[in-house]
Design a protein around this nucleic acid. Structure first.
Lengths: 163, 163
DNA sequence: TTAAATAAGATCGTATGCGATTTAATCGTC
DNA sequence: GACGATTAAATCGCATACGATCTTATTTAA
């Protein structure tokens, strides 16, 4: 018992509070730095990074409702509505009420928005060159993050199984 | 040549543009979801997540200049100045000009800010319980992200060796 | 069938983030 | 010792983010 120092006393909880120990900060930093790499590539296209994400979703399938976009990206209408209005003002998407359900707003790329896709194709290639990680590391990292995201997005699976 | 379809044609560049293929989006999603886990834990302390990061840095060493905080967190004065003013308004930090160099502003926790550290100690524990990853995965992920961050933050090591 | 409940977006207020500029203080050089 | 260059914060403008509320349209139920 003499060698075993009380954990709380030894660490003072301070070890756990060190910035470089926080997974959240590692995520936060990496995310903003990678986003920063996109900026110069997206600027010629007239897109911000979140706008680029919205266009990625729309290029896959359109039209989509604001809600469906939010579902795909993890954003709500408070964020998306102004963003979509800016994309509309920039001539990249159309917004129109769904005639079948006037509550919904359908978003789809305009011709200009669709055309932008061709130029966007260069971005993933250009970007992956700048990432200081091996292919294996990228695949691994992507897999871990996807699992993390999926698990955190699940609503309430805790009733019977949890962890 | 019949079986070998042109790569660009086969993928249409579209594979590369799929949202679920983007490392950036995996990072972006994971980061916001994890940040969201902090919100309910930080709210009782009266802190937002970026404010919590600032306090983590200050709890390690204080006083610090605005610039030093920005260096540690990857933020600039445009973000930090208003944030620090809010922390000051909340009574958690003091801001005063460095007498030795009036350009600098020194930030340090108040007594209340220092005391908050005790309550914050519970947060990393509470949070790690909510992460659906094994210890190994967390360590691995943290390591990869740290390397990524470090590499992306390095300025220009390309010329020869810099330093 | 119509009033209550619900659903989908929009809006408001507040807090980041960041590029660009501004202001004030210090440094370098002559 | 004066003056231009540099540095440190602050400020401005714009674009996310998000909790809370509001409005309108649809669905449910009595």
């Amino acid at each position: 018992m003499t060698a075993t120092i009380d954990k709380e006393a030894r660490q003072d909880g301070g070890e756990l509070l060190r910035l470089d120990r926080q997974l959240c900060f590692a995520l936060y930093s990496a995310s903003s730095l990678v986003t920063r790499l996109y900026r110069p590539l997206l600027e010629p296209l007239g897109l911000t990074y979140p706008q680029y994400l919205v266009m990625l979703v729309l290029w896959e399938k359109a039209p989509r409702t604001v809600g469906a976009l939010g579902e795909a990206l993890g954003l709500d209408s408070a964020t998306l509505t102004p963003l979509l209005k800016r994309l509309e003002a920039g001539g990249l998407v159309n917004r129109k009420r769904d005639p079948a359900d006037e509550r919904r707003v359908l978003i789809e790329p305009t011709a200009a928005g669709a055309a932008l896709r061709e130029r966007a194709k260069e971005i993933p290639k250009a970007l992956s060159c700048q990432l200081p990680l091996s292919q294996d590391e990228i695949v691994d990292l992507h897999g871990t993050l996807t699992r993390l995201t999926r698990a955190l997005r699940e609503p309430e699976d805790q009733s019977a199984q949890a962890g």
